[in-house]
């Protein structure tokens, strides 16, 4: 458990996009259903992890399968709450708010890029990019304008009307990156963003992510050394604990 007991400081004057303070996450094996045993065994997926990520940082999370990369990423994105410790997004401890408030916190402050893109098949690239703005209640014109700017930025301005099924894997991931950025969040998390792409396309997507998200904090979890090479610093996890920090 290397230097995980303290929150590493970044640019001190600017509040971090996200902080994790001694967080841990346990799961109950066999679920928590009505007929499940009360004394079901628990699995500790993450233990005593602390970090702070500023806007402009690109942080990689590395480690073998089962090391806790995705768990940490989900906690930093506000998709899950820690069993112990605190995750703070926009000065809010995510464990102290309701599910609805946590969804709103994600909507306003976090963009998420998934390994398998998770675009809505029925919608065009433009509508997929603008999807979070629907929940924010922005007008159709505003949604179209913002989506058009971001699709231009990811090089898909001429394919805005295409459905996901009409786009290549790399193009779909670029649409997903644009969707993650459309609300101008402080934090973008990417879970294995190159996992479904060939190496050339993966490199292009990573360059684009780092380039477009220059004002955001970016956290990406990956097995891929190519992906970790673009990061300012990399946190290595093993068995749920930070074993190495590399700048």
């Amino acid at each position: 458990m290397a230097d995980s007991s303290t929150i590493p400081e970044s640019s001190a004057a600017i509040p971090p996009a996200v902080t994790a303070d001694s967080i841990g996450r346990e799961y109950t094996r066999g679920g928590t259903g009505f007929f499940d045993r009360a004394d079901a065994p628990t699995v500790r997926a993450l233990d005593d992890v602390s970090l702070a990520i500023q806007r402009g940082d690109v942080v990689g999370i590395a480690g073998p399968s089962g090391s806790g990369k995705s768990t940490l990423l989900h906690l930093l994105a506000g998709l899950d709450i820690p069993t112990n410790g605190t995750v703070t997004i926009a000065d809010t401890d995510i464990a102290t708010v309701s599910k609805r408030q946590r969804a709103r916190l994600r909507l306003d402050n976090v963009g998420i890029v998934f390994q398998r893109f998770h675009l809505l098949d029925a919608l065009s690239a433009r509508a997929n990019v603008a999807l979070p703005l629907v929940e924010l209640g922005e007008s159709k014109r505003q949604r179209r304008e913002k989506a058009a700017v971001l699709l231009d930025a990811v090089g898909l301005g001429d394919r805005s009307g295409h459905k996901p099924g009409q786009l290549s894997g790399g193009e779909q991931q670029r649409v997903a990156i644009a969707r993650a950025l459309v609300t101008e969040p402080a934090l973008v998390v990417a879970d294995e963003p190159t996992g479904e792409l060939d190496s050339v396309t993966g490199e292009q997507v990573l360059d684009l992510l780092v380039d477009v998200a220059d004002e955001q904090a970016v956290v990406l979890a990956s097995h891929d050394q190519q992906a970790l090479d673009v990061c300012d610093r990399v946190i290595h996890l093993q068995d749920g604990e930070i074993v190495k920090r590399v700048k």
């Binding site: 994105a77 998709l79 599910k99 609805r100 969804a103 709103r104 994600r106 909507l107 306003d108 976090v110 998420i112 998934f114 398998r116 998770h118 675009l119 809505l120 098949d121 999807l131 979070p132 929940e135 969707r179 609300t183």
Partner: peptide
């Protein structure tokens, strides 16, 4: 479920 999960992850409330 995956698409509904994606909506949830993006920030759509349960009510929406």
């Amino acid at each position: 479920r995956e698409q509904l999960g994606a909506l949830a992850a993006v920030g759509f409330s349960q009510r929406s």
